[in-house]
Write a protein that binds this DNA or RNA. Sequence first.
DNA 1: AGGGTGACGATCA
DNA 2: ATGATCGCCACCC
Length: 118
Amino acid sequence: MSTRLQTKGKSKQSPDDKRARVVRCIRSLPSGMVSSYGAIASAAGWPGAARQVVQILRQVPGLPWHRVVGSGGAIKLQGENGAEQRFRLRLEGVTFRGARVDMKRHEFKFKSGHRAIR
DNA sequence: AGGGTGACGATCA
DNA sequence: ATGATCGCCACCC
């Protein structure tokens, strides 16, 4: 095991496991496709944790952060950061409908089996 | 323990 | 479409 100090036997899951699943979902986003904070949280078996997805995006280096947008395809980053995100997405062929990503064409659908417990 | 903070999300005026 | 509100979850004083 890596850094798994098993000291607490929580009835739920260790915060690390949830984080790991979120990271996997994000890393599975193919170029040209996007997903939303909330959708990723759900796909990772952690519904309601959109804000945690954000935190993970900020601290884990190397993730395709630009492929994660707000609900409905909204770009949530402000100013320069938002501009860069749109720039990167366009480079991958992502198209927009006004200020948001055209989710009809670019929303990535996670396989319905990314859950935690089985 | 208590309160403030976010790259959120759904709902309502 | 815009802004306010409330619910959500973890982190940081």
